[in-house]
């Protein structure tokens, strides 16, 4: 029985490995020795890289903060679309959950395999810095999207100015509650640089106004925990004037799961939230959120891959953004006046 079970396990593992690799035509890095190097470009990795590489031999790995976060799927689709257009290979790899250490291991694996480029959203700016520097030193071009590691040797950061969208949210809240009042903040993983920047932008903008910002609450990137916290906190604070969600977690649930939010908005409360994913749009139509501020994930995926491609090809026309190599992918706004138009641009989940 034991032997049989062991054989069944071995056979199942081999079958699973075959099944997973059969459909994925991922090339290992070319064994050819690098010919010449690009010099002069600020973003160029230190090690030798081939100047001219066939498009079909180029592999760019796109590494989200976590594979389980559906918010990155628009970036994935756009990156794959751009990869097809350029005739290069795109790999979607990452940690199973938002964990900096696991993400470091993923990048280490990519360095071992010598992929040509890595486009990554960092779980932690400092924790990822060393491994990004090692990747660059070993000849891999690294671009960052969504969440930056500004002190690393990355070639560029394509994303939203998180401080700016926090500031924008605060300005909207100030406009919604001109007489001021208490405002609560819901965040996800504590310490994530993009979320902390949004909070900083929000807090600094309302400073000196008649708005009192209550201590930050976290749903730990978990929809259920976010729903429970928002429900309990809203019910327990009848004098709450507004919420700022620095990510859209509660709106990934069904509207029926948020009766307290419905009641809160009906009683004159206000909510401004970051993210404009497809399932969130219905909440705008139902009057359960005043304004959604969305990052442009498709642009991050598309621009990120294209910029890395140009760097790999040694294209001198590559645009790395401003002096800090920041490429602003902008943001979009959705409110009761335009939510249907914004919804029409979204891929259904």
């Amino acid at each position: 029985m034991k032997k049989m079970l062991a054989w069944v396990l071995v056979a199942a593992t081999m079958f699973a490995v075959y099944g997973c690799t059969a459909g994925q035509k991922t090339s290992q890095p070319s064994a050819e020795a690098p010919a010449k190097t690009i010099s002069g470009a600020t973003a160029a990795p230190a090690a030798d890289i081939p100047v001219v590489k066939e498009d079909k031999d180029i592999t760019i790995a796109v590494v989200p903060k976590a594979l389980d976060n559906a918010i990155f799927l628009d970036a994935k689709n756009a990156a794959e679309e751009k990869g097809k257009e350029l005739g290069i290979k795109i790999e979607w790899v990452g940690p199973t959950k938002s964990d900096a250490a696991e993400q470091v291991s993923v990048v280490e694996g990519l360095i071992e395999r010598k992929v040509d480029g890595i486009l990554i959203s960092c779980n932690d700016a400092d924790a990822l810095k060393d491994v990004i520097d090692r990747a660059v030193d070993s000849g891999i071009y690294v671009g960052i999207f969504d969440s930056d590691s500004p002190n690393s040797k990355r070639a560029f950061y394509a994303g939203t100015d998180n401080y700016a969208i926090g500031k924008l949210a605060a300005e909207k809240v100030k406009e919604l509650i001109p007489d001021g009042g208490k405002v609560a903040i819901l965040t996800g993983v504590l310490g994530a640089p993009n979320l902390e920047e949004r909070i900083r932008g929000f807090k600094e903008t309302v400073k000196g106004s008649n708005i009192e910002v209550l201590p930050v609450q976290t749903g730990e990137d978990d929809v259920q925990k976010s729903v429970e916290i928002v429900s309990q906190y809203t019910a327990a604070n009848p004098d709450l004037a507004a919420w700022f969600f620095d990510g859209g977690w509660p709106y990934f649930a069904d509207p029926d799961a948020l009766p307290e939010v419905k009641k809160f908005m009906k009683n004159g409360g206000h909510i401004v939230s970051i993210d404009t994913c497809e399932p969130m749009m219905q909440f705008v139509g139902m009057g359960m959120v005043d304004l959604l501020i969305g990052q442009n994930y498709p642009a991050m995926g598309s621009i990120g891959v294209e910029t890395l491609y140009k760097l790999i090809k040694g294209d001198k026309s590559v645009d790395l953004g401003d002096a800090t190599h920041y490429i602003d992918t902008g943001y979009e706004l959705a409110d009761i006046n335009n939510w249907k138009e914004v919804l029409a641009t979204k891929t259904p989940w």
Partner: peptide, 15 residues
């Protein structure tokens, strides 16, 4: 029961 409570089934649930 949790999927029913949130009205949505997610691969990320229960981490």
């Amino acid at each position: 029961a949790t999927a029913a409570r949130l009205g949505v089934g997610q691969s990320t649930a229960g981490q």
